[in-house]
Amino acid sequence: MEIPRHWRLKQQRYSLVGEVCPHCDHKIFPPRDICPNCGDEAKELFTFSGKGEVYSYTKIYEAPTGFDANAPYTVALVKLEEGPIITAQLTDLDSTPVEIGMPVEMVTRKMRNDGDERGIIVYGYKFRLRT
């Protein structure tokens, strides 16, 4: 059971809330309170647009515990419009072949159950192709 962690991360997971550096305007995700660009403190919240493109990807056939119900699925490095690159599942792919540079947008989806079907449902960001 990881309920405290799920609860602490809900804003960044549900709606891509990260941070913006007040000194150099660098956009930060996930939030870490220190700007990786200039090293100063950065605690101002910033909600990302959710738009980005596929930077790299791989298809998962042997999924880790908790994610096996969704296999096979595609995991991508997504470069957000505001700069950061994040790891996320791609969803609603259909039979469309994934390509590097494809435009994607964030959606909030079910990630997995915490433990079994008696546990809480963990929701978070995934990306789908942008039409």
Binding site: Y14, A69, N70, V107, R109, K110, K126
Partner: peptide
């Protein structure tokens, strides 16, 4: 709905 969708995710969108 897809495997990762329910009334919560659909309501959010």
């Amino acid at each position: 709905p897809g495997l990762d969708e329910d009334v919560i995710t659909m309501s959010i969108e």
